[in-house]
């Protein structure tokens, strides 16, 4: 972090401290969406928020060095393929598109809902990348036509 960018040293230090926890919390919400309140979308939003916090504290350049818009676009599109891949895997291993082909597992544990965890991860990545990209595009005042979410 260059000293002349972003906000004051206090903000930057606090951001350093709490940001990893925010990120971790986002991953938790994303992974445990099937047994607690949450899921792919809230988890993705929290992850995007941690990046937005970095942007606010340390400036755009630093945030874009960390996770550029091209990266966001790649993650955004790739996660859709992940989702469709899971869907078609259900078609191949089961009978229907998006069929839950994995074993149900025991209740209240992480592997307890078959493919829903994987779907949540795909959606979370997609939403996180898309919201970060939207925030950056709107704040950079240099818009493109790729404002598509979900």
């Amino acid at each position: 972090m260059k000293p002349d960018q972003g906000m004051s040293l206090i903000v930057k230090t606090v951001t350093c401290w709490i940001n990893s926890f925010i990120f971790l919390f986002g991953i938790y919400v994303m992974l445990f969406g099937h047994i607690t309140p949450g899921g792919g979308f809230p988890g993705g939003v929290i992850i995007a928020c941690s990046f937005i916090l970095i942007t606010l504290a340390a400036g755009k350049e630093f945030a874009l060095k960390l996770f550029s818009l091209d990266d966001a676009s790649v993650v955004d599109s790739f996660s859709i393929f992940l989702f469709l891949f899971i869907g078609f895997l259900g078609l191949i291993l089961g009978n229907y598109f998006l069929q839950n082909f994995m074993a149900a597992g025991e209740p209240f544990r992480l592997p307890s809902a078959g493919t829903i965890v994987l779907n949540n991860v795909a959606i979370g990545l997609k939403v996180g990348a898309a919201i970060f990209a939207m925030f950056m595009y709107l704040s950079l005042f240099r818009l493109d036509e790729g404002e598509e979410t979900e």
Binding site: S73, V74, D76, S77, I80, F81, L84, G87, F97
Partner: peptide, 13 residues
């Protein structure tokens, strides 16, 4: 639904 959606994102990717 799936084919145009997949192809649309493939272009961006």
């Amino acid at each position: 639904v799936a084919l145009p959606l997949a192809m649309g994102f493939l272009y961006i990717l």
